[in-house]
Amino acid sequence: MANRKERQRFERLMMGHLDGAYNLALWLVREPAEAEDIVQTAYMRAFEHFHTFTGGNAAGWIMTIVRNTAYNWLNKQKRNSNLISFDEVLHSHEPDNRKQLTPEEAVSINARSSQLMEQMERLPVEFREALFLREIEGYSYKEIAEITQVPKGTVMSRLSRGRGQLQNLLLEQQKRRQQNGM
């Protein structure tokens, strides 16, 4: 019963990463029903291509398939219009048009998880992805580069710009709250 053994091996290696896979999809597409669909699709696709998994990092392998499936969906949706406009090819050599915060401003930021997530959703999807893989999953730059299929330098730049933009957004939010006396 080769099929059965193969399926059992797949489940043993991949089912343990379901929480990470679902949350990655959720961070990327931001809608639970879609994230569920994407993970289901990704796992089916992964099983169909399981013969290409040559051992090693199972989590990284399944995460790559999940994020590729999520990006396919995002591309189809063309719903990036409500995100901060982002074209890495065009803008990668320009400084972010937001100002660099002073160290005093940056350190004054206090954000609760709900406030943070609200601002996180305004980041370009590639920045959110890098931050998720780094801070929630704890992957190294090299591992993130492999999963997202970009050079390590791009990972560093996405993390740094993501954090910088988050700090900007959070500070603006904090100032608005203070003005409203909240």
Binding site: G20, Y22, N23, L116, L131, E135, R163, L166, Q167, L170
Partner: peptide, 15 residues
């Protein structure tokens, strides 16, 4: 501080 806050978001429970 920012990294710590992001880590605190953690996982949402899956369906």
């Amino acid at each position: 501080k920012l990294n710590t806050s992001i880590k605190k978001i953690g996982y949402s429970s899956r369906p």
